[in-house]
Amino acid sequence: MSKTRKVDPRIIRTRHLLRDALVSLIDESGYDSITVQDITDRATINRATFYLHYRDKHDLLISSTDDILHELITNLDMTSTPVVSFVDLEEPPPSFVGMFAQIAKHADFYRVMLAKHHMPYFVARLQEVLAGFIQEGMSSVLAKENALTVPKEMVIRYTASAFLGVVIWWLENDMSYSPKYMASNLLRMATKGPYANDPF
């Protein structure tokens, strides 16, 4: 059996420096005005090294997005999580808490790409990741789709959009609540609504 080849730590460090430079420059100037020279100057890396890793700034953006979301997907993996229970909302599934913890870990990236500059590729990819997570969660608790009053895909898209909006709000407010608090209360709203007693 072949072993997975480890990436040289120097390569990882270089890519992180370039990603961080890209994010900080987008935050300051917007994506369109940035050049590869700007990125390499900020990262204190020469252009030749940049082109060993990426074709252009768009390739860096796509690769950075995919790397960040791959980490998120790994944390959201529900295949190793027991069937989700909505009985004890004070103890939300670890994968759901992990989602917020992962976002907090890369808060600068998410804040710039999602909350401040709303980069289309990143927003679309994140929405798909959230939709997949919600679909898995529904499949683990929903025995029959005819228990729904609307099409399942509509529920998934509605909930994914709500989750995305809450994540943006959390980032804009400096993540003033813990990942566990966010996971618990977002799950509560998604399953029981925001009211202590139904006002309707």
Rank of each mutant, 00 (worst) to 15 (best):
I62D: 07
N173M: 05
D56W: 08
R13Y: 01
K3P: 00
K144I: 03
E28T: 15
I156P: 10
K144G: 02
V141R: 10
V166Y: 03
E28A: 15
A124H: 14
D108S: 10
S33K: 10
D174E: 12
G193I: 05
S139M: 04
V36A: 08
L52V: 15
V83G: 02
K3F: 04
N185L: 06
H58T: 15
D77Q: 06
D20I: 11
Y54A: 03
L187R: 08
F86L: 11
T35Y: 08
D66R: 15
I73L: 03
D198H: 10
F200T: 15
A107F: 07
S63L: 07
D66H: 15
L61E: 12
D56H: 13
L76N: 02
L126F: 13
L126G: 05
L60N: 07
F50M: 09
D174L: 04
V97N: 00
I73K: 12
A21K: 08
R111D: 04
R157D: 14
G30R: 13
F133P: 00
T74N: 08
V112L: 02
T14N: 07
I11C: 03
D108C: 05
I26F: 09
V166E: 04
T44M: 08
R125Q: 13
I45C: 01
G30W: 08
R15P: 06
H118N: 12
S178R: 01
A196M: 09
D20L: 04
V84F: 12
L22E: 04
D88T: 13
Q37C: 04
I134Q: 01
D27P: 12
I103C: 02
I11D: 06
E136A: 11
K6S: 09
D56M: 09
T49D: 01
D174I: 09
P9M: 04
S29M: 13
I12W: 00
H58E: 12
P179V: 05
M119S: 06
S161W: 00
L187M: 13
K152C: 10
S33P: 01
I11T: 15
F122Y: 12
S63F: 08
L72S: 03
A190V: 12
L72E: 01
K3D: 01
I68A: 08
T149K: 09
S176R: 11
L148T: 09
T149V: 07
H58A: 08
E172A: 14
K3T: 10
F109A: 10
S80W: 02
L22W: 07
M182D: 01
L187T: 13
E91Y: 01
V155L: 11
I62F: 12
M119T: 14
G132Q: 02
P179N: 03
A21R: 08
R13N: 04
F109D: 06
G193R: 02
V23W: 07
F163V: 00
R157P: 12
A115E: 07
E136T: 14
S63C: 09
R42F: 11
N197C: 07
D77T: 10
T44G: 02
V87N: 01
M189S: 10
G137A: 11
V150W: 03
T149I: 06
